[in-house]
Amino acid sequence: MEMLKKYASIVMLLTVGAVMFTGCGGKTTNTGSQDGYGDGVDGVDPYGVGSTNLDDPTLVDGDMPLADIDFKNLNPVDIAFTPVYFGYNTFTIPPAEMEKVNALADLMIAEQSFLLLITGHCDERGTVEYNVSLGEYRAQAIRDILIQLGVAPERIQTLSMGEEMPADPGHNEAAWKLNRRGELSFFTR
């Protein structure tokens, strides 16, 4: 429990800084693939290119398939871990939020019985359907870094709520900044 309190304190401090420094107006260009189509370029059928997972032919190199965790039948752990906040119209984790994600990874590695649900949210700007996808990607961006830091993928589940569950119902920059977030919930079996 001491360890949990320590993590919670670190996260609280990081969050204050992060909310202050997270960009909110301009768009951020997503990093990564050039055209978004990975290996399957030039009109080539992707199923004929590269290695294929025989258990699931829709999976390709580099995929980290989602776990199928039924959280309804798990026990929630009472930890108030502050959300990871994002800039406008992007799922890139801002540098100021990275320490928070690092602390989250440390917690998940220290507490091996924990399972994590990451819920992505968006502000109300943009279309409803696009924001559902964006919320999912925000959750997955946090998941990807946790996996890189050594957390087993099968312990993490993602969920998007799009713009439907704002933390702050206001219609201004201050509210939108709080609403672009990845919320973190912990469970044990």
Binding site: N30, T31, G32, S33, G36, Y37, G38, D39, G40, P46, V60, G62, D63, F91, T127, E129, Y130, V132, S133, L134, E136, Y137
Partner: peptide, 10 residues
């Protein structure tokens, strides 16, 4: 699509 770093919808 297999776009690790972009977001598809609609």
């Amino acid at each position: 699509t297999k776009s690790k770093k972009c977001n598809e919808s609609s």
